[in-house]
């Protein structure tokens, strides 16, 4: 029982983290058409900053999470400025630009933090394990699960109950109408990129205690986020959440059950979703 239950809970926790990371990516694509291929680099940057800042005390842990989100937001701001200069040149040029930024960012991160996998030092309480209903489970994962649930809930409230969130959803649906009510859609695009960056940094910080952060983090995170965005339907946050949970469970249960096949399980699942729902990616999503 433990062999499947523990990975399944891990999978839900991982899925929620991926949802936090992918939500920003999908909204940025849906609203401004920016396919941010540097998203994985922002996640890795958040992870590195958090791992370097957290030194085993509660204040340092709080600082680590805040700094990671801040670094992500700053990265998002840089990307917003860089892609804004390419307005009118088509989505492809923006994607290629962020791709170049991702290559540069990955190299700078490796130069700054080395090529080893880093893990943050957490307060001792979090390093222990607890027994819940007869199953042993690490406290840090429970904490991450709790924080992830809180962030997803807060994200839902912001997106559906605040004016800013409504503007973002309106920009995804109809840019011209948003411009018509006196809001510059490009401002929304930039704000979305900054917010997406902050969420990416946060996701990176929350993932490091479980998976660590290393040179492959950016690629893996980007690949998983892209799969989630494609499977969830571009621009759809609920779709991304569903897809992220599925990806998280497939990744963790798949890795423990069929280690060699795990990457193919995921790509295979994506292929099935794409073939089954051919209409979910409208022609309007093209450049």
């Amino acid at each position: 029982m433990d062999a499947y239950l523990i990975p399944a809970v891990d999978g839900v926790a991982y899925g929620l983290l991926l949802a936090i990371a992918a939500a920003g990516l999908t909204v940025a694509f849906g609203a401004g058409g920016v396919l941010n291929l540097a998203h994985g680099t922002l996640i890795a940057a958040g992870g590195y900053v958090a791992a370097a800042t957290s030194s085993g005390t509660w204040p340092s842990l709080a600082a680590a999470v805040a700094l990671a989100a801040g670094v992500g937001a700053a990265g998002g701001g840089v990307l917003a400025a860089a892609t804004a200069a390419l307005q009118g040149r088509g989505h492809l040029d923006q994607a290629l630009l962020t791709f170049g930024v991702a290559l540069v960012g990955a190299d700078l991160l490796t130069a700054a933090y080395g090529s080893d996998t880093l893990r943050p030092r957490l307060p001792e309480v979090l390093e222990a394990t607890v027994r819940i209903a007869g199953h042993r489970y690490p406290v840090d994962r429970l904490a991450v699960l709790g924080v992830a649930v809180a962030v997803v809930a807060a994200g839902y409230v912001v997106l559906h109950r605040t004016r800013a969130g409504r503007l973002i959803r309106a920009t995804v649906d109809d840019r011209a109408m948003v411009a018509g009510i006196g809001v510059n859609p490009r401002l929304v695009d930039a704000a979305v990129l900054v917010a997406a960056g902050a969420l990416a940094g946060l996701a990176g910080a929350l993932t490091t205690p479980i998976l660590g952060v290393g040179p492959h983090t950016a690629d893996t995170a980007l690949l998983l986020s892209l799969i989630i965005v494609v499977c969830g339907g571009l621009g759809s946050v609920p779709g991304a959440l569903t897809a992220a949970l599925a990806v998280g469970v497939v990744q963790t249960v798949g890795v423990t059950s069929f280690p060699a096949l795990a990457p193919y399980l995921l790509i295979g699942a994506m292929a099935v979703v794409l073939l089954a729902r051919r209409t979910s990616l409208p022609a309007g999503a093209s450049a």
């Binding site: 396919l35 291929l37 690629d219 093209s286």
Partner: peptide, 21 residues
């Protein structure tokens, strides 16, 4: 057979998955 149904950035995204794979 799978990829050419898609266009532009979506195609790029899927081809990225192919490269990783």
């Amino acid at each position: 057979a799978l990829l050419v149904r898609y266009r532009a950035t979506v195609f790029l995204m899927l081809s990225l998955a192919v490269a990783e794979l």
